[in-house]
C-alpha cells in the first residue's frame, strides 16, 4: 500500500500538469496583447474578411504567440528559476517538464502557421512564422543573454501581430501596417526599461544583460527618454494615413504628451529619490505605457467604425 502512495507522490511532481498549467505556458497576458493588436490590424484593413476567417486568423495568430511563448519558457527555464518574477511559471514550479514545453511550443507554432496560411494567405503565415522564429530564436536564444539591446531588437517580435492581421486581410503590407509595427517597436524599450528600473535585482541575479545591469540606471533613464521622443513621430504620423483620423489624432496627442512627461520625470530623477518613494514614478510610467498602447490601438479601431468615418468626412479630413 505504501508503495502505491509513494508512486503517486512521485508522479505529481512532473508530467502531470493540469490544463491551466499548459495555458500558463502560453503566456496568456502576452497573448491577450497579441490578440488585441492582431485583431485591430485585421479590422482596420480596408478589405474585410468573412467573420469565420477573421476569427480563425486571430485564433491562429494567438496560437503562434502561445507557441513562441512556450518555446521561450523552455529555453529560459534556467533563468526563470532565479528571477522572483518568473519562479512560479509552470517549468520552474515543476508542473510542466521542459520536454513537454518544447513539444507544445513546436506543435503550436507549426499548426498556427500552416492553419493561418490555409485560412487566409501565405504572406500572413510567413510573417507569423518569422515572428515566432524572431521571438524564440533571435530574441530568446541569442539576443536576450548577449546584448543590452535585447529589448530593442527583440521588441520586433511583439510588433509584428498587427502587421500579420493586416496581411491576413489584405494579402500585402503597406505604410499603415508599417506604422502600427513601429508604434509597438518603439514603445517596447521604454516599457521594459521602466519595468527593469523597479524590478531591481531580478535581471542582475539572472545575469541577463539588461541596460540597467550593463550600463547603469542613469543611462537607462536617458534611453527611456530618447526612445519615447523617437516614438512620438510614428504614433502621430499614423493619424494621417487611412487608418487614422481626428479621433485618433486627439487620443495620440494626449497620450504622447503624457508619455513624454512621464519619460521626462524618469530622466530627471536621481536614484536615491526613486528608492525613497519605491519607484513610484517608474511604476506609474509602466502603467501608463500599457494605457498608451491600448489607447492607440483602440483609437485605430474606433476610426474604422462608420460614425468616425462620417465625422472625418464632415470636417473634411481625408488621407
Amino acid at each position: 500500500m505504501s508503495d502505491i502512495q509513494a508512486d503517486i507522490a512521485g508522479q505529481t511532481t512532473t508530467g502531470e500538469a493540469g490544463f491551466g498549467d499548459y495555458v500558463q505556458l502560453l503566456k496568456p497576458r502576452v497573448m491577450s496583447l497579441v490578440v488585441f493588436t492582431g485583431l485591430v490590424g485585421l479590422l482596420v484593413a480596408p478589405v474585410s474578411l468573412h467573420p469565420i476567417e477573421a476569427l480563425a486568423a486571430v485564433i491562429f495568430i494567438a496560437l503562434g504567440a502561445g507557441g513562441s511563448g512556450a518555446l521561450n519558457m523552455w529555453w529560459d527555464a534556467d533563468i526563470d528559476r532565479v528571477m522572483s518574477r518568473t519562479q512560479k511559471r509552470p517549468i520552474p514550479a515543476g508542473k510542466v517538464t521542459e520536454g513537454e514545453a518544447l513539444a507544445i511550443g513546436v506543435a503550436l507554432s507549426g499548426i498556427s502557421v500552416v492553419m493561418l496560411g490555409l485560412a487566409t494567405n501565405w504572406l500572413a503565415a510567413g510573417l507569423l512564422a518569422f515572428t515566432i522564429f524572431f521571438y524564440a530564436v533571435v530574441y530568446s536564444m541569442w539576443l536576450k543573454r548577449s546584448t543590452p539591446q535585447n529589448i530593442v531588437i527583440g521588441g520586433a517580435s511583439g510588433a509584428f501581430p498587427p502587421m500579420v492581421g493586416w496581411a491576413a486581410a489584405m494579402g500585402s503590407v503597406s505604410i499603415e501596417a508599417a506604422l502600427m509595427f513601429m508604434v509597438i517597436f518603439m514603445w517596447t524599450p521604454p516599457h521594459f526599461w521602466a519595468l527593469a528600473l523597479f524590478m531591481k535585482g531580478d535581471y542582475h541575479d539572472a545575469q541577463v544583460p539588461m541596460l540597467t545591469v550593463t550600463h547603469g540606471r542613469r543611462t537607462t533613464r536617458t534611453h527611456i527618454l530618447v526612445y519615447t521622443v523617437a516614438l512620438v513621430p510614428f504614433a502621430l504620423a499614423a493619424a494621417f494615413t487611412s487608418i487614422g483620423g481626428p479621433i485618433y489624432l486627439a487620443v495620440a496627442l494626449v497620450l504622447n504628451l503624457l508619455f513624454l512627461i512621464g519619460a521626462w520625470r524618469i530622466w530627471r530623477r536621481a536614484e536615491p529619490a526613486a528608492e525613497a518613494d519605491k519607484y513610484h514614478v517608474e511604476r506609474r510610467f509602466f502603467r501608463l505605457s500599457l494605457i498608451y498602447l491600448f489607447g492607440h490601438f483602440a483609437a485605430f479601431l474606433i476610426e474604422a467604425t462608420a460614425p468616425a468615418g462620417a465625422l472625418a468626412a464632415a470636417i473634411g479630413w481625408g488621407f
Binding site: 503517486i8 502531470e16 500538469a17 490544463f19 499548459y22
Partner: peptide, 16 residues
Amino acid sequence: DHELHTRRWSRNLGVG
C-alpha cells in the same frame, strides 16, 4: 479523488 486525478481530469477535459 486524489489531487492528481483532479489535475488529470482538468487536463483531459481541456485538451478534449
